[in-house]
Design a protein around this nucleic acid. Structure first.
Lengths: 194, 194, 194, 194
DNA sequence: TATGAATGAGGTTTCATTCAT
DNA sequence: GATGAATGAAACCTCATTCAT
């Protein structure tokens, strides 16, 4: 496999396992099975490597939402939203520690922000995608005219986000069944008329 | 003023300004106007100092919620909830970077978790407090019998949490007016029958 | 009790327990039940305190030998020498770690040397004392004319010294019975004609 | 030359010159002509470096004794023993301060002890070697049947050890001639019938 | 391109000593 | 005389980065 990819995957694994502060170039090199020097043949600096890894995580978060493009009109709104909520819970959980770690490194945070504005990326895009789906369902008459699509999207993903944060924070492992229950409760509360 | 307090406040300020990774004992000492050695007269280690600061932040988050104890039956539910949402937005915004930073230091994270279990602290307590308020209002007949109080609380605080996270993440400053608008939209959506 | 004495005894105890490198003013103060500042009311510096303590140890080593002054002509030479050997083994054992520690601090070592020359102190005085005893016994005809009294004294105390050193070095605890056996063997070998 | 060896030699030199307490990583690096960081590419810690150096010293002590294996029956017993005594005086003198320094660092002392038990090393091995030689000479009839070989060995090396200790302690330089005289006197006294 | 020894700046922590109370 | 908080120098060690091979 391409060494560059192996390094990136090793970095991701070490980051998730050890936390940003304890992620050293030596550890990454060991996990990738190469020398420390090799890291610098493929990435300009340790910071660059982190940016690469974190952007991949954010892309994965977004990917889960893209399926919504094809969903309006299919199944039930509640069913679709439950699946979205479950996907969000899983993805948020997986990448929470890495995403949060960025706050400890203002240098990396700043470089992320640059990317957001120029490429219109960022975590808020997921909320926009759900909003888009809900607007479409409203157009199809499957949700009430009076519902605030953006607010509904923010409520859905926001509560999933905080739930994942608190899970990661307290370190409590959660079963898929528990996550499904949580998704159902919040969807039922937001979309009680659908 | 007591040097211990001055050190803790200096540490908080440096943490919020520079991020955990760039917060050095030297910076803290400079900000506190004392020598590095003095830090160790009052805190056993840098990690201990962080723990102290972060716990204070979490306490402040909780304090804002305690006013809910006296509110059931007063004003309107929506009005009360808007105030809670606004307070949550402000508090989350202020401490988001520090709270998130903990994920970069598994050592600190672990020690926090110990504290949670033994002292029943932690971020989830805020959600419980809002749930308690809503249950009381339900008993008073001011919100529908069928509403899931815990889900409503999670939706409210969860979306505020994510909103604050995204604000901090993108670095966009928000006016109080914008925050009020956001609070109003989500409260209107959750409590549309009240 | 006088605080100065309490401090000196505390320092001795900490030195024997923790080793010179791990003997801090804080530990000494704790052991003496006083503040660190108090140490400096009674001793000019930490080094001065050590000198005081180590000189006391050396004095105790010497004290055991002074009884020899009254011994010539009494008991048997072998018996007397066995008692001396046993006393030396016990004393050397007790203070070996402290005496040796001096080598790690050339500053202290130098100041000791000054003392030796001006006051004619030092570990070699013990050997001289034993030599003096043997010369007296030779005069009394209880040991052969041809025996080299100084060499005999050096052999006796030297082997006890090394034995104690090796005991301390390997950390093996020794019973009084074992020490007596050792003393008997070397005395029998040195004084086989007496 | 290999940097690892250069570091070890520099450490030895600094240790002998400055004493353990005043031997800093900065000094060692300067003496070795490399950066402090390089020390840690070759030794896990300062303590590990010390252990390495001290073990080498002890090995050198032993090496001088191994020549005894080929000596039984050759030359005279007294002549052989005088050479052994002289070698011991020289070696003990050279490494006394370093060996003794260990007592100031219980951590290092403990790790040494582990080594002794598992590898059967240690200073007592030299005494065993001399004892072995004497037993062989006794078998050859060159020393009296009644002589206690182990006691004789302990007397010989013990007095050399203490003599070297006192030399180092008082800081008095000794000529080879003086050392030879001392060796002769103690050998004559122990082996007066040979 | 891959290596890994060497670097050196900078981090946290310890500790003997001082001094105002 | 007794205190103990404050000090600041200096210790050990880490780690991202470079560069000759």
């Amino acid at each position: 496999m391409d060494l560059k990819i192996r390094i990136a995957e090793a970095a991701e694994q070490v980051l998730l396992t050890n936390g940003l502060a304890k992620t050293t170039t030596k550890e990454i090199a060991k996990a990738a099975g190469c020398s420390e020097g090799s890291l610098y043949n493929h990435f300009k600096s340790k910071e660059d490597l982190f940016l690469h890894v974190v952007r991949n995580q954010l892309k994965m978060l977004m990917a889960a939402m893209t399926s919504l493009r094809n969903l309006p009109g299919k199944g039930t709104v509640r069913g679709n939203m439950e699946e979205v909520a479950l996907a969000a819970l899983n993805d948020y959980n997986h990448s929470m520690s890495m995403i949060c770690s960025i706050f400890s490194e203002p240098g990396i945070l700043d470089r992320h922000r640059e990317g957001f504005e120029s490429r219109n990326e960022g975590p808020h895009r997921a909320n926009e995608t759900v909003e888009g789906y809900l607007l479409e369902e409203k157009r199809l008459g499957r949700i009430p005219e009076g519902m605030d699509a953006r607010a509904a999207a923010d409520l859905l993903l926001g509560s999933c986000f905080q739930h994942a944060f608190q899970s990661s924070f307290t370190g409590r492992e959660e079963t898929q069944e528990e996550r499904s229950q949580y998704a159902k409760r919040i969807v039922d509360t937001i979309f009680r008329e659908c």
